[in-house]
Design a protein around this nucleic acid. Structure first.
Length: 747
DNA sequence: TCGAGTTCAATTTTT
DNA sequence: TTGAACTCGA
């Protein structure tokens, strides 16, 4: 598709700072690709001197594909292209690439970052386990009073403001910060001794390295053309890094969309744009305002909502797409009906299942929809961050790979030293830790010389020796076979498959084994490489990969995901669910102007995912936080001009949905049909109701109808004193004590 | 020292 | 509902 004049202008503008102000679906990616192509083909710029930052791996991968196409080369599988190709990746993957490169040339002492080339990356869970250990064992603190998560938050905040552990002492103004200071020091010590870094460190260390003059010079020469997409989501450190790299040639192009900034909780700072304008005052500003995706209706709607933000820069997104179909508002009595209606619509609509995208605010909110789709036999896929790599069996195997790659990684070492069970119990590990702390030894060193450890009996020693034999064998093999083979070898040698499936049902067994197969399968992509290299790159990419990156395009299923995750997608039909105050906008953001505006931007992002049809839904009553809650409709719905909203025809739906449950529910409501519309739309925040149950059991008889807040209606099928079996609509027979159970008789 | 059984707390958003 | 952190018996 040909570029419009604005896009053309952005494309042709090289050798000068450039600020592209983009709107949702204004073809910014296509413009950037065209720009890269133009640079290489028309201006004869060396491909390898172009560096391009995207926000997700998926975006990076797509960009690599597009660029590869224009250059007539095969798409590089990862950031490590073997031929002359631009460096395209996320902030994190690019900085890891650069860090490794630097570390292979300079010594750690020279760089002052206390890191060796074979470092590994600790994810959020690893980080918490390190911190928990510190807080509990070294600082002797109560984890209730000082939760690891909270401490982690403070540390992350400090890191992203470039405050080191030592400097944190100056920040202390409260008890908590005093704890943070101590924990931070210990945490850094642990990371160094494990040769590990966390996500924040990837940025911090890169920044530290690039502040060394000769290294900076080298990289300024190497990457003369810089492009940063999603600039509104950069944080302070990222900003500073880019600034360093760009300071010599000033060929920096950034794409900025303030209405899609939804990552402030990850320290993204929109004020970076103010700094940008100051630092590059000569920059050319290009605005891309035409939307090529959604219909007029959807866009005017989105505009109406986003314009309620004060900090929003006035702009008008427009489109030539014809006004299309309906924007429907589903106002369901409860969450189950909400899910059923959505399921029904998906079922009735022509076209493929994969035309449908269901969005919600938080991951936990997918459940009701899942249940409903499952019942209707509709294939679906939930995109959940790190779901696959969070599974125990995957984590175990990756921990093996990590210790093989970097034997100093104590966190992983502890995970696998007794997995499968080798009778190396906590007592032995305590002794190992003691040696590690007091003699400055590493685990492999201690394990190798276990005979000299006096505190252990022979029995424990021989267990550790067994492990050491396996471990050394695997390390040796890692130099000979590629990572996928190595994984198979680990499973074989340790009999891991038997261990993990030992006590499980057939069904669970297959699922675990399938997961292992899948991991090996992913690893086979690295087969062509040198064994150690395949291990290194596999580990590096695994820690940055998300569920979304493995998205399978071939089969036909409905996709479910959070709004944040959906930022990079578009879909023909979008369902936006859980639109209630306290849930979306979330209760944490209500009452805080800046946070609320971010929620509103999130709403904007969600709405603009839709190409043709947008459904929004809420439930008057729903099960949330382990209880039933009623929240008024989201303020975002009210912000949409009423004439744009068409109410979904509930009656029509319900007449087709004549279940036992439904008719019963109507029949015992004295207000009859008004039930959906009036009695449930009271705009009150009813706090979770406490169920006081002290029933008079004499009122219950066999075959009585009862109502339960969780399982709804049921019939008593057996009864002996207080104990009854009740067949519920939403649950097969349940045995309960009707004296204390929250049931009431229905007449 | 294990592990089965029980209690109790927890839910934004993700590179 | 799930999972992690506890208890307690062997």
């Amino acid at each position: 598709m040909p570029l419009n004049p604005k896009q053309e202008e952005a494309k042709n503008h090289i050798n000068w700072p450039l600020l592209i102000i983009a709107w949702a679906w204004s073809w910014k990616t296509a413009t950037l690709t065209a720009r890269v192509e133009y640079m290489i083909r028309e201006r004869n710029i060396n491909s390898a001197s172009i560096l391009m930052v995207t926000f997700t791996n998926k975006a990076a991968s797509e960009m690599r594909e597009r660029v590869a196409k224009t250059l007539w080369v095969e798409k590089p599988r990862s950031i490590y292209a073997k031929w002359n190709f631009p460096l395209i990746g996320t902030f994190h993957s690019i900085w890891i690439y650069i860090l490794k490169e630097v570390l292979s040339k300079y010594s750690s002492e020279e760089l002052q970052i206390w890191l060796r080339k074979d470092f590994i990356i600790y994810d959020e869970q690893d980080k918490l386990s390190v911190l928990k250990n510190i807080l509990k064992n070294r600082l002797n603190l109560d984890e209730k009073e000082f939760p690891a998560r909270q401490i982690a938050f403070y540390i992350s905040n400090a890191k992203n403001n470039l405050i080191t552990a030592k400097w944190y002492e100056k920040e202390i103004d409260s008890t908590i910060k005093e704890v943070v200071f101590k924990a931070y020091l210990e945490y850094e010590k642990d990371l160094i001794s494990n040769n590990a870094i966390d996500f924040d460190d990837i940025l911090i260390k890169t920044y530290a390295v690039l502040r060394i003059w000769r290294i900076l010079e080298e990289y300024q020469e190497k990457y003369k053309y810089l492009m940063v997409d999603e600039y509104q989501d950069t944080n302070l450190v990222q900003y500073e890094i880019v600034k360093l790299l760009a300071s010599k040639y000033r060929n920096l192009a950034v794409v900025w969309d303030d209405s899609q900034s939804i990552y402030s909780w990850r320290w993204a700072d929109m004020r970076n744009i103010i700094n940008f304008k100051k630092d590059y005052s000569e920059a050319l500003v290009v605005k891309l305002e035409q939307n090529y995706r959604s219909t007029k209706k959807i866009i005017s709607w989105a505009n109406a909502v986003i314009s309620k933000n004060n900090s929003w820069i006035k702009k008008e997104l427009w489109t030539e797409n014809d006004e299309w179909s309906h924007i429907q508002y589903i106002e369901a009595p409860d969450d189950k009906i909400e899910a059923s209606i959505i399921t029904q619509i998906i079922k009735e609509k022509e076209g493929d299942y994969k035309d449908n995208l269901v969005l919600y605010r938080t991951n936990a909110q997918s459940r009701k929809i899942e249940e409903s789709l499952l019942m209707a036999n509709i294939p679906y896929r939930v995109i959940w961050w790190m779901k696959f790599y969070d599974r125990a069996e995957i984590k175990d195997l990756l921990a093996y790979l990590r210790v093989i790659f970097n034997p100093n990684d104590t966190v992983s070492m502890k995970r696998i030293i007794n997995t499968p069970t080798r009778k190396i119990w906590a007592k032995s590990i305590e002794v190992l830790d003691h040696y590690k702390e007091n003699f400055g030894l590493t685990y492999p060193q201690i394990i190798e010389n276990i005979d000299e450890v006096e505190e252990l009996n022979n029995w424990a020693k021989s267990a550790i020796k067994t492990f050491n034999t396996i471990f050394e064998d695997l390390v040796l093999k890692s130099h000979k076979i590629v990572v996928s083979e190595l994984l198979r070898e680990i499973v074989k040698i340790t009999k891991y498959d038997e261990y993990i499936t030992e006590w499980l049902s057939q069904e669970e067994k297959t699922s675990k084994l399938e997961n292992i197969d899948e991991l090996v399968n992913v690893a086979t992509e690295y087969n062509g490489m040198e064994p150690r290299e395949s291990l290194a790159i596999f580990l590096e990419e695994v820690s940055l990969i998300t569920d979304m990156d493995t998205k399978d395009e071939r089969s036909d299923y409905v996709t479910l995901m959070t709004i944040h995750t959906s930022k990079w997608l578009e879909q023909k039909r979008v369902f936006l669910t859980w639109l209630e105050e306290w849930l979306f906008p979330s209760f944490r953001s209500i009452g805080e102007a800046a946070a609320l505006e971010e929620e509103r931007r999130l709403m904007y992002v969600a709405m603009t995912r839709a190409r043709e049809e947008l459904y929004i839904s809420r439930a008057s009553e729903r099960f949330n936080f382990w209880d039933y809650v009623r929240n008024p409709e989201s303020r975002f719905i009210k912000e949409i001009p009423k004439e744009h909203i068409e109410n979904y025809d509930l009656w029509n739906f319900l007449s087709k949905w004549n279940s036992y449950f439904w008719w019963n529910r109507l029949s015992w409501n004295s207000e009859g049909f008004s039930w959906f519309n009036t009695s449930f739309s009271n705009e009150t925040f009813s706090k979770p109701k406490v169920k006081v149950a002290d029933n008079d059991i004499s009122q219950f008889n066999l075959w009585d109808r009862v109502n339960h807040p969780k399982f709804w209606n049921g019939i008593i099928t057996t009864l002996s004193w207080e104990l009854a079996t009740i067949a519920f609509t939403w649950k097969w027979a349940v045995k309960m004590n009707i004296k204390i159970a929250p049931v009431r008789k229905v007449f």
